[in-house]
């Protein structure tokens, strides 16, 4: 540390933040990689349909495509909001 260094502002150590953000985004992008291109669209349309009946958030719909030996499983999970009964179709 030089005697003139106090004139310069030291940047905050930020590599840890970068690593954490990358870890999360890379994991997320890998989980959707290799799936068919229609998955995001399917997710949106399903969300539209579900919203006709229940008011759910975008993040509440989770679509997962898993490959087992020889067959693929499309897994859909919807987290319904607490305590609110589903609105009747109409």
């Amino acid at each position: 540390m030089g005697i003139l260094d106090f004139l310069k502002r030291k940047p905050e150590p930020s590599a840890g933040v970068a690593k954490e953000r990358l870890r999360i985004i890379v994991a997320q992008e890998r989980s959707t990689r290799g799936g068919p291109d229609y998955l995001p669209l399917l997710r949106n349309e399903l969300l539209e349909v579900i919203r006709k009946y229940v008011n759910v958030d975008v993040e509440a719909v989770n679509i997962n495509l898993e490959r087992d030996s020889g067959h693929e499983v499309l897994e859909l999970s919807v987290a319904l909001p607490d305590g609110k009964p589903a609105a009747s179709a109409g």
Binding site: P13, S14, A15, G16
Partner: peptide, 17 residues
């Protein structure tokens, strides 16, 4: 800059990828 915590290290990049 890696030592100062300003830049991802070799190990960080290897771990992430």
């Amino acid at each position: 800059r890696v030592e100062a915590g300003e830049m991802l290290s070799v190990k960080d990049v290897e771990e992430i990828l």
